[in-house]
Amino acid sequence: MSMLLIGAVAVTTGEFIPSAGAPDVFPPFDPRTFASQLFWLAVSFGALYFLMARVALPRIGEVIEERRDRIQRDLDEAVRLKAETDAALKAYEQSLADARGKAQGLAKETRDRLAAETDAERHRVEGELNAKLAETEKRIGETKARALASVDEIAASTASDVVSLLTGKGVSDGEVRKALAKARAG
């Protein structure tokens, strides 16, 4: 069919694109085909350029751009959240340090208070004990003095008894005492 048509064209124009068979020139260098190739190249490449520039590329570019924006937004959001987290962590550590300091203060205060109370109690008990000790020493001293005084009496009565037994004569208390005082002094 096409051969017939080409044949018709050839008859009327004298130039035609060979439809089949062995070429008489090397096909890529056959100038008879140039016009057709250039025309259809212009049509097809023009259409391709139009479709790419107006439809396909803007769509792809839009999607890629949108994705890039979205990723950037998400990254920014992540950075912001990280900063928030860091701030919260810092606040937490700060309050922890505060609490620790407060607890230490409280512990020290309690320790000091207890130590002071213990000291006071000890002082009181020591005072009481000292007072009791002093009183007891005083009593011992009195008892000793009393005992020593008794020793004189006993010595006097013993001496008068001894004298009366030896001499058979009574001795007055006054004489005995004088003699004892003389002996103690001598």
């Binding site: 124009t13 694109i17 016009a35 057709s36 025309f39 259809w40």
Partner: peptide, 9 residues
């Protein structure tokens, strides 16, 4: 010009 629709086109 001969702008026939060819196998190339």
């Amino acid at each position: 010009f001969d702008t026939s629709f060819t196998n190339s086109a």
